[in-house]
Design a protein around this nucleic acid. Structure first.
Length: 297
DNA sequence: AAAAAAGCCAACCGCAGTTGG
DNA sequence: ACCAACTGCGGTTGGCTTTTT
């Protein structure tokens, strides 16, 4: 039995559909069947005409949503796995609530799904870790109290945050990625001669590293501190950054800043700008300067 | 066992950008 | 250049399910 407000709502129809009387609410299996059959045989050149042609009393917008979020054959069902969760967190750190763009990094997932997963699970998880879900930074109330991470003997605050800035990709060779990490641990600053761009300054230090295929493999421990003895350049999905199986990392730093440059093998060409920003973001980590990070190159 | 609260997610709303007449 | 229709997106809602009291 419908409530009064539901009756009234159904009479009114969608705003987007004007006076047309359309059905709302959950889709029945019969409606799904009609829509699925129509789209698979005719496609959807115009969503607004789909309901009429498919014999549905829905608005085009509703049909589109149903197709995108539920009926599309390439949809991945089931809950998100750990890798997908990490990708969502990493990309969200860069893009914010750009659910559609985040979903593009997760084949078979919809923006709605990602958004719901974020709001129902990830957000709470971050909050429980003391991280602000919108900035991904530690919330003031959760700052670690350990003196070694906040002050030194002279009571001067120690840097404990690494932030990174993607350099303007247009400045760079297509096969190169460079970005800065600022505020790094002064104790590990041993290398002079910062470089700004591969075209202007040679790399002062290099290391050949294996290329693996996931972002998460870079971040080895729960504090997301990269294990640089086995640092990985990674490819995101179908757009691999490096075509070779090795990449070269150049590192240079001064007291509080470190520039990192990835040189791809000479044979490789394109790199994924999204990857660059994600990787850059991954370097925006909570950082304990007393940890031995092993910047060994 | 029942009621209340919390979790989850499908679907809707409204805005902004795009397109075509 | 203007306007209406269409499309895509992010925010929000509402209702079903699960968990807690």
């Amino acid at each position: 039995m419908k409530e009064k407000w539901e009756m009234k709502r159904d009479e009114m129809g969608h705003r987007c559909c004007g006076k047309h009387k359309v059905k709302r609410g959950l889709w029945s299996p019969e409606e799904d069947e009609k829509l699925l059959r129509y789209i698979t045989t005719h496609g959807h050149p115009s969503w607004s005409s789909v309901p009429k042609l498919a014999g549905l009393q829905r608005c085009g917008k509703s049909c589109r949503l149903r197709w995108i979020n539920y009926l599309r054959p390439d949809l991945k069902r089931g809950s998100f796995n750990a890798e997908e969760e990490q990708i969502i967190i990493d990309v969200h750190r860069i893009l914010g609530n750009k659910w559609a763009q985040i979903a593009k990094h997760l084949p078979g997932r919809t923006d709605n799904e990602v958004k719901n997963f974020w709001n129902s699970c990830i957000k709470k998880k971050l909050l429980s870790q003391g991280l602000d879900p919108s900035t991904h930074n530690l919330m003031p109330s959760h700052k670690r109290s350990s003196s070694s991470t906040t002050t030194n003997n002279n009571n001067i605050p120690k840097p404990r945050k690494m932030t990174s800035i993607m350099k303007n990709p247009t400045d760079l060779d297509q096969s190169t990625i460079a970005f800065s990490i600022t505020n790094i641990n002064p104790h590990t600053s041993t290398k002079p001669n910062r470089f700004k761009s591969p075209n202007r300054t040679p790399i002062s230090t290099q290391a050949t590293i294996p290329v693996k295929d996931t972002m998460s493999s870079l971040l080895e421990d729960e504090n997301m501190i990269p294990n640089w003895s086995d640092v990985n350049a990674m490819a995101i999905h179908e757009a691999p950054m490096f075509s070779g199986d090795k990449a070269v990392v150049g590192v240079d730093d001064d007291d509080l800043n470190m520039d990192i440059l990835f040189n791809t093998p000479s044979s490789s060409s394109a790199f994924d700008p999204d990857f660059a920003s994600i990787f850059s973001s991954a370097m925006s980590i909570d950082f304990n300067p007393m940890d031995d990070l092993g910047w060994t190159f």
